[in-house]
């Protein structure tokens, strides 16, 4: 009897914790169907009106495609850079290895707002503010630490003897990389690309400092929209973004198993 009670209490606790964590998302979801022109909870009447407005908002739509393109490109380049860095750091000894390791870790430790100021001051003189190149570089800087992390984890799980066996049996170093190492670190590459994409797609702080009109991303558009108006359009857009993130995670889970990838 006591055991049953304990189990019930435990289940209740877990449910409450999840409710607490999910509450903001649930509120946003509900508000996104509200018909009023301001953000308030609970809604009075429900409709898909806000969603229709989001899809009719040219600024949001063009910023969405820009963010998607930037995210995909950043994801790809970031795993390429991450792969080279991981191979160098985990397979070779060289001078300055410690310094590079620290530099890669640095974006984890430095607050994004500080990074943003630094990135702005660097890109400014180069004439890269409000340009695609500028935002690519900025996003690469913050995503590469993650891809290095996931790829290094995968690389460390690869038994070196397997690569040696390939070499002994006739594979050149390039062939070993292409036929043995890359297929074996595939989970790390996919996880790295997904994380890099999601970070880039979601990044607001640094983007706000370095973009204005030409290369505005979805997060900066949302921020600017919120400065002037607060209506359920934002909630609807948030729901769409949540669905995209969940969709990406589900696809990865189906493809390779997220636990394996991370």
């Amino acid at each position: 009897m006591d055991a049953k009670l304990a189990r019930f209490a435990f289940a209740l606790l877990i449910t409450l914790l999840y409710l607490f964590l999910l509450a903001p998302i649930i509120v946003v979801l509900v508000i996104s169907f509200d018909t009023r022109q301001y953000l308030a909870f609970p809604p009075e009447s429900l409709s898909f009106g806000s969603y229709a407005k989001v899809f009719a908002n040219v600024k949001f739509i063009s910023a969405f495609w820009r963010s998607l393109g930037i995210g995909l490109f950043v994801g790809l380049v970031s795993i390429f850079a991450g792969l080279l860095l991981s191979l160098a750091l985990s397979r070779h000894d060289f001078r300055g290895k410690g310094a590079i390791n620290f530099l890669i870790l640095a974006p984890f430790l430095v607050p994004h707002i500080v990074l943003a100021v630094g990135v702005m001051l660097v890109l400014g003189p180069l004439g890269l503010l409000d340009s695609y190149s500028g935002i690519f570089l900025a996003h690469l800087g913050i995503t590469t630490p993650y891809t290095v992390r996931t790829i290094t984890m995968s690389l460390m799980a690869v038994d070196r003897r397997i690569e040696e066996a390939a070499r002994v049996h006739g594979a050149s170093p390039a062939m070993v990389l292409w036929r043995i190492t890359l297929p074996l670190v595939r989970p790390g590459l996919i996880a790295g690309a997904v994380i890099a994409f999601l970070i880039s797609f979601d990044e607001a702080t640094i983007s706000l400092f370095i973009v204005s009109v030409k290369s505005s991303t979805l997060p900066t558009e949302i921020y600017h929209y919120l400065e002037y108006s607060t209506d359920p359009q934002i909630a609807a857009l948030s729901v769409i973004l949540i669905l995209i993130s969940v969709g990406v995670v589900v696809v990865v889970e189906r493809l390779i198993g997220l636990r394996k990838a991370l």
């Binding site: 397997i162 066996a165 070499r167 002994v168 049996h169 006739g170 043995i180 297929p183």
Partner: peptide, 26 residues
Amino acid sequence: HKRNMGMVFQAYALFPHMTVAENIGF
């Protein structure tokens, strides 16, 4: 890779992402 040696490793070191035939034909 140009020495033409065969080597059998302690833990076999087979290529886990290939079939047995692909391993042998590598």
